[in-house]
Amino acid sequence: MKKIFYYLSELQQNNDREWFHAHKPERLAALQMFEQLVHELNAELMKMDATISLHEPKNLTYRLNRDIRFAKDKTPYMPAFRANIAPNGKDFIPVGYYLFLMPGDRSFLGGGLYADGMSEVTNAIRTRITRKPEEFLSIINQPEFARTFEVLGTKLKRIPHGFEEYKDSELAEWLKHKSWHLSYNLTDEALLSSQDFVGEAVKIFQLMKPFNHFINGAL
């Protein structure tokens, strides 16, 4: 982790193409370490979640290059290593387990789905919540889950069209969501001092598992 963070910190401070290409050996060494980490995490997640199968790490990770065509920030690279370990590899549907490593206390473990702009997906999840309210509420109100996560996502101000009958129900605030996703923040200090990052990450992802499976039931 220290070597991974050292490279990403250097990239943060030298985010230009000349430096990037001049330090290719360091990049490849850090990337190899990250892919080994992803492989180990993938193997452990398979034991915890039967929907996960083993993939080549290269098929679970993302490039450092940023799409800057419409971005205000014109730096060419994302100084972060990212991976998504899901039933279909790194595809976000069905949902899986997301790893984001970036210096500056910006690392996190993620679950659930960012569905803004996918109205059919959003509607399918809302419909599942109304059809299985007890299951949904039992997941988000489970004490350890509630202590660990906040369900994030863009929300409407009013109950969406087609779900007006639930405006006074316990489900109302959840049906206003357009997305339902989870984030568990990781500090640099915690990551750099961890003796068993994979094991610690799997414990957090295990708490996400029922939520992910509920979302996937709608998809």
Rank of each mutant, 00 (worst) to 15 (best):
L156W: 00
I215S: 14
R66T: 07
G217W: 02
F149R: 11
F108P: 04
F214K: 08
P160H: 03
S194E: 00
A29P: 04
K2Y: 06
T51S: 05
F92K: 00
N88Y: 09
I129D: 00
K90E: 09
E18L: 12
Y184R: 09
I68H: 08
K90S: 14
M1D: 04
L113D: 02
L152W: 05
L45Y: 01
Y7K: 07
S53E: 15
F145L: 04
E18M: 09
P210W: 10
P94S: 13
F92Q: 01
L54T: 08
W174V: 04
T51E: 01
Q195M: 02
L54I: 12
A201Q: 10
M33S: 10
A190E: 10
K176V: 09
M78D: 15
T127P: 02
A190I: 06
F136K: 05
D16I: 11
V151D: 00
V198M: 11
D105V: 08
H21L: 13
T187V: 10
E18P: 02
Y97N: 02
R147W: 03
I68C: 12
L60F: 10
E164W: 06
F92M: 06
D73Y: 05
G162T: 10
A218E: 01
L137W: 06
A30M: 12
S9L: 08
Y98L: 12
K178Y: 03
A190T: 09
N42I: 13
E189N: 11
H39I: 15
A43P: 10
H39T: 15
A83H: 12
V198Q: 14
A50I: 14
L113A: 09
D91F: 15
F20M: 03
N88A: 07
M208C: 12
F100A: 06
